[in-house]
């Protein structure tokens, strides 16, 4: 019987975990950015148009 080969990159499993963590962190950051942008457009709409909608000639 032969000994199982030692992986050439001993930090391989750790690297996969770190890569997954990095990807997950980026995805969360993009999600926060998108939600923030939607809120921003909503606020701009409310504050720029709000009064004008009520005060428009009927």
């Amino acid at each position: 019987m032969t000994e199982p080969e030692t992986p050439s990159n001993p930090a391989g499993a750790g690297s996969v975990d770190a890569a997954a963590r990095a990807r997950r962190g980026r995805n969360i950051a993009i999600a926060i950015g998108l939600v923030g942008f939607v809120v921003l457009v909503y606020l701009v709409t409310v504050f720029r148009m709000g009064g004008n909608v009520i005060n428009r000639p009927l």
Partner: peptide, 12 residues
């Protein structure tokens, strides 16, 4: 080692 990983949000 860090450069071999995908970028983190902190890098951006």
């Amino acid at each position: 080692a860090r450069a071999a990983l995908p970028p983190r949000w902190q890098d951006y």
